[in-house]
Write a protein that binds this DNA or RNA. Structure first.
Lengths: 377, 377
DNA sequence: ATTAGTGACTAATGCGCATTAGGCTCATCG
DNA sequence: CGATGAGCCTAATGCGCATTAGTCACTAAT
């Protein structure tokens, strides 16, 4: 009796699969009106394949408990029906949301021209897409809002982990994420012992700064101004500290850093201010490409020729650096790969791996036309 | 008997809420090890408030069936516990995923310096954040991949709707989204009657192009080259068609469009090619800021002075346009507001509103130093 | 005084999946 | 020849929420 029924089911499933599937993914309501479309579920697969819903689950998840034969059949049916697991249901049954979060804490108007993030994100995506992980993205005003977003995401069960950018000194985020138990990778921060749960992917800013100063020193530069980015950002502070140390080591007194908001406006303004001083610097190091370009233009306007009067280095390479004359020498790094690495670390964490600190290659100085021997050297 | 029990529950809830809540959101496992944190659920709230779980649901969702008194109490408890509805559970019980999708189909290396998308996204976020809607973001290589992503998102029940950018001629996406019944807003496409289910937010490129040509014509320009963006994009084609029409209307034969990939390299290359021809144009219209800047630089290298020899107009305004000398005249639009509008349309759609086509203001030409009277005019 | 009605809850169900606990059949061993 | 176990499945349960169907006490109307 029982066997009979099952057999019948199997036969009908077999037929419908090969001859005329009465079970498409398009539904038709009673009224005859065409409903938009119906998502196939495991139940549908089960009916189609003539097995129980649990068997389907076992089959599709590689769990033992079904014959290879059945497994294959179930897989085929799932494929035909275009089935995909509902992330909602998966998340609900404890499997996680299959999503990672990414928050960008920058005021909308500061977003402007920034090639770094888009490239970073595209690298991240590459890795996440392979594993069908979604990327939940949000732009907020400041770090406080960012923390609120993490809390919400966590409470709403929206993400399995997050990628944190722009680490700061006295950053509240690592502590919060630790508390929430949300796996996270900090991008661009130096390794931090206080939060063993977080992974870190970082570039050796200190080393890069040292080598830039080395190079400029060799070219005879003794007065150097570093037009830095936002104060409070970990890498800004690292660069500033290193510059000071390098200057101290060489006994250079006319070397300093000035922090800005990364905008072209401030980049130009600071440039004008320092160049109009009594003893203008002979070399300028900008923390991003936008300021470097704006600064170089400002210098030119003041009658300073680049690189004869003043050398310019951009700490970010992009098409922008090749849009002005002379082309700007820049520290080049592979932002896409940076993103890939970060995403890989996060997936490793999600797989239960333990946190670690990964260092990506030191940015390389690409010498173009904007750096030269110091005037008078 | 029953009353008694309920009363007791209420009292105990009252006490625990005010004196020593034994129910925090932090859990402690049996072994004494501190578990990372526990998400409070409606069950917790129910226990705390001494009511059933359904009552909590009614209370929190503004449904009738509970007294104002209870409602308020439940709300307070939920607040105290830091409760947030699990999106997974919500989605599973048919409420939608509280997420909208956004796919960017551009090869990774083409992403480069683009201010438009980041601004667009930040505008979108502003509106979505208000309603606690998440934004699922993905970067893919081409439109085929993009379609695959929509299918997957739909099958996985991941998004309630999507925002579509870069509409094309013969675009497969509207049809697909229609088929899937996925609410969508097309950003930048002209209204399309064939897909009544989709909303559209668009700017009047045709009108803008006409006014730009008007302006250049008035300055004496008769030979104009339009360095357009990617062929196949709806707005590229619209601009090209309009330019041709305007030229025809005025009997100008030396007016043409050349399509590119939006990169600085092609912008410069095309510029060189047309300027080195026998009768070089006196005005160049670039479809984005990156090409405009690169093109202006290329022109300068060839000995063409801007705007004396050739006028330059950028169809995208950004800090970039103010980083070169002379500053570039540009068509300025409020990309952030554009994003807001699109997001608002999508939320309206999600609320059950019907699709419509919304036109945002025509981009306005900001005259800067790069446009002038045509040589010889 | 009985009935209908209403307000305020609680119980029960389902969403789509993973998982645990059983159930049935057949081969193997003592 | 009955007991044991392995193999292959099915049934049942839970996740967190929304929702529908009761339940119970109390009021208004007949």
């Amino acid at each position: 009796m029982r066997i009979r029924l099952i057999e019948l089911n199997r036969i009908s499933a077999y037929c419908s699969g090969n001859v005329s599937p009465e079970w498409g993914i398009r539904g038709t309501t009673m009224s005859g009106k065409r409903s938009p479309a119906r998502r196939p579920t495991m139940k549908d697969i089960a009916r189609h394949a003539g097995v129980s819903q649990s068997a389907v689950s076992f089959a599709l998840n590689g769990r033992p408990g079904v014959s290879e034969d059945t497994r294959e059949r179930v897989r085929r049916v799932a494929e035909e029906l275009g089935w995909r697991p509902s992330t909602a249901a998966r998340a609900l049954s404890g499997e996680g949301a299959a999503t990672v979060g990414f928050v960008l804490a920058r005021p909308a108007d500061t977003l402007g021209v920034d090639s770094f993030f888009l490239q970073l994100v595209s690298g991240i995506q590459e890795v996440l897409a392979e594993r069908h992980l979604g990327l939940l993205f949000q732009v907020v005003e400041d770090v406080a809002d960012e923390c609120a977003v993490y809390r919400r995401w966590w409470a709403e069960h929206r993400v399995d982990g997050v990628l944190v950018v722009d680490p700061r000194t006295d950053d509240p985020r690592p502590g919060l994420l630790d508390e929430l138990g949300l796996p996270a990778v900090v991008i661009g921060g130096a390794p931090d012992d206080r939060h063993p749960g977080l992974s870190t992917v970082w570039a050796d800013d200190a080393g890069a700064m040292a080598s830039v100063v080395d190079g400029l020193y060799a070219l005879g530069h003794r007065r150097i101004v570093h037009i830095a980015g936002l104060p409070g950002l970990a890498h800004t502070e690292r660069r500033i500290r290193t510059l000071r140390a390098e200057a101290g080591r060489r006994g250079l007194s006319e070397v300093k850093s000035v922090t800005t908001d990364y905008s072209d406006a401030e980049g130009a303004a600071v440039t004008r201010r320092v160049l109009e001083g009594p003893t203008p610097p002979t070399a300028l190091i900008y923390d991003n490409d936008v300021m470097a370009v704006a600064g170089a233009a400002a210098a030119a306007e003041l009658g300073f020729s680049v690189p004869a009067d003043v050398s310019v280095v951009s700490w970010e390479d992009s098409a922008l650096c090749r849009m002005v004359k002379p082309w700007l020498s820049a520290l080049s790094r592979d932002s896409v790969e940076f993103g890939r690495t970060a995403a890989r670390e996060l997936t490793a964490l999600l797989d239960g791996g333990s946190a670690r600190a990964v260092r990506v290659p030191v940015p390389r100085l690409v010498e173009r036309g904007s750096t030269g021997v110091a005037r008078g050297a």
